[in-house]
Design a protein around this nucleic acid. Structure first.
Lengths: 214, 214
DNA sequence: GTCTATATCTAGATAGAC
DNA sequence: GTCTATCTAGATATAGAC
């Protein structure tokens, strides 16, 4: 709601509406209406609707990149993974419209296509590096093939868990409670490959988050 | 391409175009054009575009329901799971436009919303029952909480693996090779909880499928 | 910077002849 | 059943006054 200026207002209103109704179902008139400005004014500040989407994506990107900038040889603790997931899901929840219509957005907006594919590749690498970190810390033991598959499965969950949860319980991810549940579920994909004592410790930790929140 | 009559032609052309370009990016004019009929003729056979989508969904449903009609107390072998996954992914590949735009389709078409949510619930139950079957056959050992989480993760993969793979490699799922790789990946989500000898046996089987196909 | 009014375009859908 | 021609609605985007 921060009304620093009209441009910012348009962006924040757009983000809200996109998240709630899905980007294809929100017209520039709806945005202008909700922001209490005229359609013409909106087009003074943005050349097109896609331009709004791209600006929102850019802002998402700026905050997301540091989160997946995980060096290859980091010494990673299990708690680090938890924390990293928490920040990541929180941010994606804020910009969840991007993930709800991923396929069509990138089909329509070439610039977004390029950027998003690159982002997914980076994120995959980040997940892979995280697992490597756990290995080096002695907490994780996994075969190379399994590691590769687990990485893909993690990336799948990181990409589509929010739309998936929204599907089953629309608007259910508005509260942080549901998000914590999501994080726990993703984390538990890793626990089968953890060694003791981390395995038991983490299963219990995730379980406790789950039970008092889902 | 089966041209039994115009109605069937429209359906098969629609399915092809929807799968290739995404349903929102295919207009009724495109369909008519590709089917070499007039737009007016299309609307003689279908009241609306949504009507076409619904009819396609109905046909998907008729073939999919038997696949997820898995009794609660079935004695399940690991191979059964593999086979079931194979049929399931093949069918979903045929109708993959449904999964590419799931959120928006059900937001727009109320009848589809109801049916699709019901279907997802059934499919989740089917996955759960499959795990139960493996437990009863002595092949699977898993804690109740883990079982629940695994079921959700399986459902996530069953729902979004195809759009996810399409994202990374557009059109990559056209050949059955890529689909086998997908099945192997999903199946490997279960292997950490399998007992010996099934565990080793299945890891090897899935790995062999993966290596000579991906 | 903001408004009103309007242009343009495209999609879904219909009417009526054949 | 099929066609041509057309309507209507709604969305993006622009023009020009204030």
């Amino acid at each position: 709601m921060a009304k620093r200026n009209t441009r910012e207002l348009i962006l924040s209103v757009s983000l809200e509406l996109f998240n709630e109704f899905g980007e294809p179902n929100v017209t520039t008139n709806h945005i202008a209406d909700e922001a209490d400005i005229s359609p013409g004014n909106l087009y003074y500040h943005f050349r097109s609707k896609d331009d709004i989407v791209l600006e929102l994506f850019k802002r998402f990107l700026v905050r997301f990149k540091p989160l997946i900038d995980i060096p290859e040889n980091i010494l990673f603790q299990a708690e680090d993974l938890w924390f990293q997931l928490h920040l990541s899901f929180e941010l994606k929840g804020e910009y969840r419209f991007l993930y709800r219509n991923l396929a069509d957005l990138i089909a329509r907006i070439p610039d977004l296509d390029k950027a998003m594919r690159g982002l997914l590749m980076r994120e995959r690498q980040a997940a892979w590096n995280s697992l490597s970190g756990l290995e080096q810390a002695g907490a994780l033991q996994i075969e190379p093939l399994q590691k590769d598959l687990l990485t893909d499965n993690l990336l799948l969950a990181l990409t589509y868990w929010i739309p998936f949860a929204d599907l089953r319980e629309p608007g259910g991810l508005d509260n942080s409670t549901a998000q914590i549940s999501a994080i726990a579920r993703v984390l538990l994909m890793v626990t089968p490959y953890l060694r003791e004592p981390e395995k038991t410790q983490f299963t219990a930790l995730a379980a406790s988050y789950l039970t008092h929140s889902a």
